[in-house]
Design a binder for these strands. Structure first.
Lengths: 137, 137, 137, 137
DNA sequence: GTGGTCTAGACCACC
DNA sequence: GTGGTCTAGACCACA
């Protein structure tokens, strides 16, 4: 419960964003379930070897995304999915649509044919659902 | 040849990246064909109303991606696809794989079911292939 | 006498503040009348499923606001309105004035026109006076 | 253009929130107009005698509220109202409704009669519209 | 020069 | 104990 997330300070992706992605992924894969408690910002910061403000920023973003819920003075918990959808679902879906469009373009320029890319797409689904552990199947 | 690309300085996506995406997209859609000549850095900068350094940075990135070829003294041209694949294809494919994985995760948190997301994926392919004009079919 | 107040630990509003608001609201709506006895700190804490220190803090604040009166050894009672105004009325009125000013500003940024907002203001009066039960009319 | 906002570090309202409120107020009053440029985070921090991170946090919140727009590398500008409403308008309106309800309750406990409070409400509108300067009339 | 990110260390409110 | 805020100072990407 303290090694399931790693962070690369040299990545172009901001560290707080890596945490956001990591936790969203853990929830989607079923490793974290609604009601589960996340480490405190300071504990998490220690185990990730980063500053606690960075974790706090990630938690705030995750709360805005309705992935987690902060209970005053008690801690941070995984939210129940679908209960309160994020306020900007529409925009996020539009952004996701654009991400897919750009992915197709990138695939074209990397010389991937349609079949290959569709296989990659389905493989990515399995990876997102808990690759190694196969929890999502 | 100067209105097919628009750039939004207020977007969170860097302007040079918008140019890269725009040109990659135009090539993938078939609007730009191998051998077509691109505007000069300075002309392009003027018609996009941005700094020419920004266009230069985009062209550099596009050359590294083997999407365009700069012929000193003659101009900049769309490259033939697949001739000289970019040196870091492996890395780029890995990044693309990760993009798709994150997209599945995001879809989960936006409450999209598998069918919806797969439909979105195929729709994105058609959009990437020239949406309105249907050139790519 | 124990279900008319609910508290949400996940709300950004501190729990003790929710209690204060709830009791002030119940008094203003006429659900609680001068002389009515409030639950003991410990009983209230049990029925709200929270720490008793939190209830105690709420009661302290309510006493400073002259909404309730604590009679040592006998219990806690709803005070008679207007008898002993809180010592800092001026300050509180000034704060209320500022709240209204900020509300107008927020209304502007939410695109509400003057009429809409005034209607909302009057509707809020009816809500404060006991919404469903109409006791305050 | 550098003294129109003051900040009180001892206020219970967070400093970044004071900045947010101040700028929202200046826009609502007409002191700041769409397209106007705001001071850079660092300049503003100096003139407010606070840390630049605090200003940055306020700017990010204002951007989420669609009150300002950040143009990469160029600066921060007042947005055109109503163009892109904030993604969570519904929730904000609900919160505003609750604010008004609580204001009525508070008014009751401060011994204000209905007429007085309605006058205060209209006075607050005039204050929000640029009190001293009367720009909004 | 602009905003964005991060660190190290501090204080505070709340429970 | 929890998260939230703030400071001082640093580095980076972008235009």
């Amino acid at each position: 419960m303290a090694v399931w997330l790693q962070v690369d300070p040299r990545s172009p992706t901001p560290v707080y964003q890596q945490i956001v992605d990591g936790i969203k992924g853990a929830v989607a894969a079923g490793w974290l379930k609604p009601g589960d408690r996340l480490p405190s910002v300071r504990d998490f910061a220690v185990s990730l070897a980063i500053n606690h403000n960075t974790v706090a920023k990630a938690y705030q973003e995750l709360e805005r995304s309705r992935v987690i819920e902060v209970v005053r003075g008690r801690g941070t918990f995984v939210a129940s999915p679908g209960q309160r959808p994020p306020p900007d679902v529409e925009e996020r879906i539009e952004k996701l649509r654009d991400t897919l469009r750009l992915a197709w373009i990138e695939a074209y320029h990397l010389g991937l044919v349609e079949d290959e890319f569709e296989r990659m797409f389905r493989q990515a689904r399995d990876d997102a659902r808990g690759g190694e552990g196969k929890e999502g199947l």
